[in-house]
């Protein structure tokens, strides 16, 4: 299929981009790598009057090491991020997510920032971002905002982004000592999206007690989200088989799980436990 007619803008500077948005906020769609937007345009599920291509905004393209971690530009491609040794040395979860993230064509064009802003309820990066406590930076002519990732995803394909705001970069912290991470996904055989996936971060002290736990899920509800009960079961516990089992058993508690033809609710609820358990085990396997 062919998209319906739209105007195309390709600003050279962030200021120009923000100005275009300010002028046409409600009818403009931002295109970063286009790997989600173009299929939507093609299927006519989206029909914006203006497509604003931000790929020329060079300032949004780099990964910068900062005292507290990494500043990841919104236009950093999937391929660039999952092959960044400095990032993946500290965050195995990023490398894990790259294993099943779409295909080489999409990885070469699709962007980290675009993926977060698109807020696909089955996207991979949202779960990684939730597990790593990133902070999202957005900007408009009205000013800049910082949004903790746990507040960022608000509904199906909806993030806390105003029509005139651009996601510029993301701050990924450095992991605390004793931290291990992992991502495990069960992919839909057709779309490749997560039927259920879990990103896990565990910070474990020398005595084997879990000081901090994040269990982030994607593909299971209207937004990517954290499995609060599983985190509670892990934090403060000595991490042994029983603790892992407790986390698995309660991982889906309190979550309004979505069902569909491929994965009915009961099955997907069960899979939440499976991916949670597997991600925890994979992370634990990385303890020194």
């Amino acid at each position: 299929m062919i998209p319906s007619t739209f105007a195309y803008a390709a600003p050279e500077t962030l200021h120009d981009a923000m100005s275009i948005l300010a002028a046409n906020a409600d009818e403009t769609k931002i295109m970063a790598g286009g790997q989600s937007l173009i299929p939507l345009l093609k299927l006519r599920l989206a029909g914006p009057a203006v497509v604003m291509d931000i790929s020329r905004l060079a300032d949004l393209r780099g990964i910068e090491e900062t005292p507290s971690g990494f500043r990841i530009g919104a236009l950093v491609t999937h391929e660039r991020l999952i092959n960044d040794g400095a990032v993946t040395r500290r965050w195995s979860i990023v490398e894990d997510a790259g294993e099943d993230l779409a295909d080489p064509l999409v990885r070469n064009l699709g962007t980290f920032g675009g993926s977060l802003a698109h807020a696909d309820p089955a996207g991979d990066w949202p779960a990684v971002a939730l597990a790593t406590d990133v902070v999202v930076h957005v900007q408009s002519l009205r000013g800049a905002r910082e949004i903790p990732i746990e507040d960022f995803f608000t509904y199906l394909f909806t993030a806390d982004l105003a029509d005139d705001e651009i996601l510029t970069h993301v701050d990924l912290p450095k992991p605390a000592p004793g931290t291990v991470t992992a991502y495990v996904k069960i992919a839909h055989p057709a779309s490749g999206y997560a039927v259920a996936a879990a990103g896990v971060r565990l910070t474990i002290d020398a005595g084997g007690t879990c000081r901090a736990a994040r269990v982030a899920l994607t593909g299971v509800a209207t937004t990517p989200l954290r499995a609060a009960e599983a985190e509670r079961a892990l934090e403060g516990a000595v991490i042994d088989d029983a603790a892992v089992r407790r986390a698995v058993e309660c991982a889906a508690d309190g979550i309004d799980v979505m069902g569909d033809t491929y994965a009915p609710v009961d099955y997907r609820r069960h899979l939440i436990g499976v991916v949670t358990g597997r991600a925890i085990q994979r992370a634990l396997g990385r303890r020194p």
């Binding site: 299927l43 839909h188 055989p189 057709a190 779309s191 033809t261 491929y262």
Partner: peptide, 20 residues
């Protein structure tokens, strides 16, 4: 390929219909 009880097809793209 299946249809719901109203006769609407449940797959209309390769996002739902899985060819290996």
């Amino acid at each position: 390929l299946s249809w719901d009880e109203d006769g609407q097809p449940t797959a209309a793209s390769f996002m739902q219909y899985a060819v290996p």
